[in-house]
Design a protein around this nucleic acid. Structure first.
Length: 676
RNA sequence: GGGCGCGUAGCUCAAACGGAUAGAGCAUCAGAUUUCUAAUCUGAGGGUUGCAGGUUCGAUUCCUGCCGCGCCUACCA
């Protein structure tokens, strides 16, 4: 509702300005006052107009307030400070709409969105960095779906790179395993853990002698060639590890629709199709001199444009102007294509611009019967089709932003500006370990590393916290709490609750930091169930649920019927501020109003998260709402309330907050246990 | 060297578009429960927002310079 009223206000102001001043302002800035005493919306409009109209801001604000006229569901407008215009809502009207759960639909663009996230190399266990990626990505998918968008979820699998070759080398040369022995090992419960250690050991082994490094190169060639035992091993290992990753993510309720693999991008020759177009468009050109001699190169993204309509010298060509270090090699002098090239082709496919498609094969069925597909050279006849989308979001950490920008530049170079504009690199910072955490895990640190505030994880060193280990720890620690509080419940019920709490804690933890902040991981913070955590919010809901359970009332139905139980006038009285006296003090009614107002903001927050690709706003909102509720809960013993009318009002307050908390937590992928 | 980002309380982080008194959690200290279970609540202390300028009615936010830190900058993927 809050969002809807804000739009109504903006539209009205726009019309008013045009009518009264002949001024057109496309974007009316509307802020939220720091305190409900100032009203629900604040407009710094007069400051902006002061220059144009050559009048004092305060004077303009007074004029606007005097002339603006009534707006439905708004009570009044006031001038505050040096020229703010504060808008006050009709509290009862908003409360009634919130209680009835009326949220006017906004227009939803019809195009399909592709969100790609996770993309874990299938050569070792997933770690906490991958958890951040998957949780951000999955939450963003839920945000889009909540807003009514159609979304395909993809997880890109790089199954042909050196990392996979490294594990194959480990099995062949360090472990001396045969194909069938490896096949046995893949059936073990945590095969990805086995690979984690082996990958780290193999990386060390390379350092021991140049001979070993030669083996690595030879293996990589065999892998690229295909049709041999090495390639078969790689296929076996990467597929087994991939299955493990899907299981790990499924523990967090994260699912995928399609798994495109690099092996198919290679074998179906996506690059060949892309190459022709890139060359024809002049995006790609052949370098004949210098260190990149013999390569097909592109101008590096972010470097100043050498040739544009304005500055182009007619007789000069692009390659003369781009300096060596501004070149990005796309095709090596030996004719093989690098990773960025494959990515360009892949993204042309995403937008339906390549003229080629994957084969599709069924791969994994989730316990809820959701089908996950995988790419194949020769797919099944009946299959779902992916790609051809209107917008894409790639959840990839900030370290890859240059590569991402290069892909976008390539699309622009091909003339696909529309698509380039709808290509979003959903960039986030990495998860690193605090030195204390690294020491706890038994890693040897240099003096240099000990002094830092965080240390980057490294799969190559086997340095990091594995995703499943963290989830296990969280569940165990949740279980301890649940066992001590709910001895009356049976084992399976307690286990289920422990799991919900663990996932709530983990997902909230990964979402509460803003994207650009490096998470310095520490078990103490991650395992906390108190303060600004997921369980704190879950607990607020459980408390609300308990009230209704004890009272024998269905909370959602109760909220919807509020209008029949309490008149609008009465509701207004319960929510009315004290007016002019006690201006400095927040009244009891104001505090209740704050709760209702916060509860009305779910759709508003979802929009904001999508527009800024920042799920942390929703996490903050959930925490704030929980905090307000817990204070409310403590202050008002609802079931003991003697005044029947007031009791109904307080019950409705709890019901509405509970409903919105469950909703917002759901968007974050967090379930709420029945008891805690 | 170049590109991107960061620097806010003891620690970990907030502060959308420049706005009203820079806020939370943790930790520390002091309190609260015969009640809808305290995974909770109330309160206290803790800040020259890295430094110096500039733009503005107004700067944690924008611009410039400096200091410190991280990431990227491969014919690896």
């Amino acid at each position: 509702m809050y969002r809807h009223l804000e739009r109504r206000l903006a539209q009205h102001i726009r019309d008013f300005l045009r009518r009264s001043y002949g001024i057109d302002i496309e974007r009316i800035v509307i802020e939220q006052p720091p305190n409900v005493r100032f009203g629900e919306y604040a407009l710094p409009l007069a400051f902006e107009l002061a220059k144009k109209l050559r009048k004092a801001p305060r004077k303009i604000a007074e004029e606007i307030v005097a002339g603006i006229g009534p707006i439905q569901d708004f009570e009044k407008f006031e001038v505050a400070g040096a020229g703010y215009i504060n808008a006050r809502l009709n509290r009862a009207a908003l409360a009634l709409a919130v209680a009835k759960d009326e949220e006017p639909q906004s227009e939803v663009p019809s195009g399909k969105i592709l969100v790609e996230h996770s993309s874990i190399n299938p050569n070792k266990a997933a770690h906490i960095g991958h958890l951040r990626n998957a949780i951000l990505g999955d939450t963003f998918v839920r945000l889009l779906q909540y807003a009514g968008r159609k979304v395909d979820v993809q997880n890109y699998i790089d199954n042909t790179g050196v990392q996979v070759a490294d594990v194959v080398v480990g099995f062949q040369h360090l472990e001396k395993k045969s194909l069938s022995e490896i096949e046995q090992l893949t059936r073990r419960p945590r095969f990805d853990y086995y690979c984690w250690d082996l990958y780290a050991r193999t990386s060390q082994w390379y350092e021991q002698s140049p001979e070993n490094k030669k083996i690595r190169l030879r293996t990589l060639h065999e892998l690229e060639q295909g049709g041999n035992e090495t390639a078969a091993m790689a296929e076996l290992i990467s597929t087994a590890v991939l299955r493990r990753h899907l299981e790990t993510m499924d523990r967090l309720d994260i699912e995928y629709d399609f798994l495109p693999r690099e092996s198919e991008i290679l074998r179906l020759r996506f690059w060949d199709a892309a190459f022709e177009k890139l060359r024809a468009a002049g995006v790609l050109y052949f370098e004949t001199e210098g260190k990149n001699k013999g390569c097909w190169v592109m101008r590096r993204a972010g470097t100043s444009k050498p040739l544009t309509a304005e500055n182009a010298e007619p007789n000069e060509s692009a390659e003369k102007i781009v300096s060596e270090e501004d070149q990005k090699v796309i095709v090596r002098s030996n004719g093989t294509v690098g990773y960025v090239g494959k990515d360009i082709a892949y993204h042309m496919w995403k937008f339906g611009l390549l003229g080629k498609d994957f084969g599709y094969r069924k791969f994994f069925i989730y316990p809820n019967q959701h089908q996950c597909w995988i790419s194949a050279e020769q797919g099944e006849r009946d299959h779902q089709h992916f790609g051809d989308v209107a917008e894409i979001y790639n959840v990839i950490d900030a370290r890859q932003s240059e590569a991402q920008n290069t892909v976008i530049e390539a699309l622009r170079g091909l003339g696909y500006d529309e698509q380039a504009d709808h290509y979003t690199h959903f960039s986030y910072e990495m998860v690193a370990l605090t030195p204390r955490c690294a020491a706890e895990l038994g890693y040897e640190l240099s003096e240099d590393e000990k002094a830092r505030s965080y240390i980057e994880v490294s799969g190559r060193r086997g340095f990091g916290v594995k995703a499943d280990d963290l989830i296990d720890k969280l569940i165990a620690s949740g279980q301890k709490e649940v066992d001590s509080r709910h001895a009356e419940l049976d084992d399976s019920a307690r286990q289920k609750i422990s799991k919900q709490i663990a996932i709530g804690a983990l997902r909230y933890f990964m979402l509460k930091y803003t994207k650009q902040s490096v998470i310095a991981f520490d078990f103490k913070d991650a395992l906390s169930f108190e303060g600004e955590t997921g369980p704190y919010a879950q607990y607020a809901v459980v408390r609300a649920t308990n009230i209704f359970r004890k009272g024998g009332i269905d909370p959602d139905a109760f909220a919807k019927e509020l209008g029949r139980n309490i008149s609008s006038d009465e509701l207004g009285k319960f929510l009315a501020g004290k007016g002019d006296k006690d201006k400095d003090k927040v009244s009891d009614a104001d505090e209740l109003w704050e709760l209702w107002l916060a509860a009305s903001k779910t759709a508003y927050l979802v929009d904001q998260c999508i527009a800024t690709t920042e799920p942390a706003y929703l996490a903050k909102h959930v925490f704030q709402l929980s905090q307000l509720f817990n204070a409310f809960y403590h202050r008002h013993p609802i079931l003991a309330e003697a005044d029947e009318r007031r009791k109904k009002f307080l019950l409705a307050t709890a019901a509405v907050v509970r409903r919105e908390l469950i909703r917002a937590l759901g968007v974050m992928g967090i379930e709420v246990p029945p008891v805690m």
